[in-house]
Nucleic acid binder design. Structure first.
Lengths: 361, 361
DNA sequence: CTGTTAGCGCGTTCAC
DNA sequence: GTGAACGCGCTAACAG
């Protein structure tokens, strides 16, 4: 099987020197129209394709960016990757994709693989909480490869970051619930297992330690309650494992309380599906018995029965903005770290009921 | 800013020749324990990272595979990519990802980019129907880069392919509907706009020309009707643009027929969401008024009200199998094209009603 | 066991 | 305008 033709073979076939062939194929320098034609047709005939790897090792730029997310099959990340990919492709960059499945070792080797492939930059949605990114990003830093953080912020690092206004968006949504007469509002998901807070102060501390999106959203919930002077009932926040199964259990408990919540706020898709299942199996109706607000609008929310009111985030734009920041950094070098905060919006549908007239006691 | 250290710098720092450093770092050939240690610590101290690009141009293998799908943000492809990615990562391969958005030009440039990057192989979910892949796959063929087709079969090419048993799975599902007393069964989506068949023969021909999954599924539908001697009503198959919006219109028409369908079969997620919306806005109930079966089980189908009966396909495994075939081809060379047909299963829930006792007329 | 040397495909300078 | 020649970082014979 014939090996792939090189630029020198094209040159020979065209009867010119390598450099001339390289110039016309690379589109730089001077070359006569005659020579250009001969090279082009020769290249065409031989099925010549430039070797980007060789180009990269020669020029030092691979025109490839690395993207590492928790899980491509998660629609949120899928959409973010799409946003980044569209922009990258338009500018002639390739995308090397890695998933971590929230595992630190996976994340480390993902970053290392990208570095070894000499990507021009990395978009990273890290699964590390709090500090301690030094180790993971070390190889990238050593090779001075720019990194943009996506969706998950890191406190210490001076890195470009793209996030949404998690805290504020939840605060607004929960506040609107309160203004509609709801005061017992369930919150799924609260902080992870290990914290197990028992009082407001502990809860708030747990949320703040948790620099993740979840922590931010929880803070928004607490903000809203505090703003409106509604007392927190810690039994109304679901804690522990973040699985649909666990939510169903937790919610089963909540919904069978003597004073059960009149509304539930869900911070993620799985939290929402678990909640819906629990409500249904408790024989309750939405919104007559329980109001529901979810996060991250998905296609099915609009056709659910009843259609679900959701907080919608500009997921694709999140990825696009990350890519924009990254390419800017790649092409225009250094400067102070920039953090983009994108806005969410609430899509009002029919899963929230106004019960303010029921509170005439 | 210090440039990234090369293998010769490591060698010098360790006081050995390049080759020795290369041998220990590359893990091949003989090298004394002493030298090995010195090289390793030197590499460690300098933060050395191998340049895979240089390795690739030298060895001719990039240990990277290309994946091109219609759209990463589509959960189906997201999951398939995950399956492929997991396996590739485990074997030390990187993944270059491209989306086509069902556009032929995009597909061509995607494949070309991958070829130019000298990927070791390509997993392709092509948006081309029928024949005419010659142009798109030409560069890959010229460079003799193996290609595995994913989810969408191509007739002429002798390529490894991974698909599901579309036709048979639909046949079975529709047959079960018939055995429960349904005879007027709506089908979404039928063949695309340009065909506009008006009779059974034309419809069947259109489906067969359409070598895509949709065509196969439509054939399964026709099979089931024929098997059971149920007459086809062509007004019960939705045609034209494959958008949720269009489905709603089409279904609005169907549901207001004098003899409206008692069941609807949906071949894709968007077809399903459109159908659900139409049913709801017609004021009909599932399954009392209309039964529904969807394709490609998603998390929300289980918590819908009522829970939806779905045909489930092994999406992730689809990607994994494609990757398996590809890596086998990459590592063990040639052989006859292999096509893997994966099995679907039906997840029975509560959206289908037995109406066989209603047919006592 | 180790160092020298010749490629791999391509970009690019520098005389002609 | 054009070609010869060197370098990019690395692999892999090949002698020693």
């Amino acid at each position: 099987m014939r090996r792939t033709p090189t630029i020198s073979e094209v040159a020979k076939a065209a009867g010119v020197g390598r450099a001339t062939a390289a110039r016309t194929l690379g589109g730089y320098g001077y070359v006569s129209a005659d020579a250009r034609d001969r090279v082009l047709t020769a290249a065409q005939k031989l099925g010549y394709r430039p070797n980007r790897l060789a180009q990269s090792v020669s020029t030092g730029s691979s025109r490839t960016i690395g993207v590492v997310v928790a899980d491509v099959s998660n629609p949120f990340f899928g959409d973010a990757v799409r946003g980044a990919s569209e922009l990258a492709t338009a500018k002639g960059y390739g995308i090397l994709l890695m998933s971590t499945y929230e595992d630190v070792e996976n994340e480390t080797s993902a970053v290392n693989l990208l570095v070894d492939n000499r990507v021009d930059g990395i978009i990273l949605s890290s699964s590390i909480r709090g500090t301690g990114h030094g180790d993971i990003l070390r190889s990238a830093r050593d090779q001075s490869i720019p990194v943009v953080l996506l969706d998950r912020q890191i406190s210490d690092a001076e890195l470009d970051t793209v996030i949404i206004n998690n805290r504020e968006s939840v605060r607004q949504a929960v506040t609107s619930l309160i203004s509609l007469g709801h005061s017992r509002i369930g919150f799924v998901w609260g902080p992870p297992n290990e914290y197990r807070p028992r009082w407001q102060s502990e809860l708030s501390e747990a949320a703040q330690n948790d620099l993740w999106t979840d922590g931010e959203r929880m803070m928004g919930y607490l903000d809203a309650l505090a703003d409106s002077g509604v007392e927190l009932d810690i039994d109304l926040v679901s804690m522990g494992e973040k699985t649909e199964h666990h939510v169903r259990e937790d919610l089963g408990r909540m919904l069978s309380m003597k004073k059960r919540p009149t509304a539930i706020f869900c911070t993620e898709t799985e939290a929402l599906t678990g909640t819906l299942a629990a409500i249904r199996s408790a024989g309750l109706r939405i919104p007559e018995d329980v109001s529901v607000i979810g996060f991250d609008d998905s296609s099915w929310a609009a056709v659910y029965d009843p259609p679900l009111t959701m907080i919608k985030q500009p997921t694709r734009e999140l990825g696009a903005e990350a890519c924009r920041l990254l390419l800017d950094r790649v092409e225009n070098g250094i400067g102070p770290a920039h953090v983009s905060v994108l806005e969410t919006s609430v899509v009002t549908r029919e899963s929230v009921l106004d019960i303010s007239d029921r509170n005439s006691d």
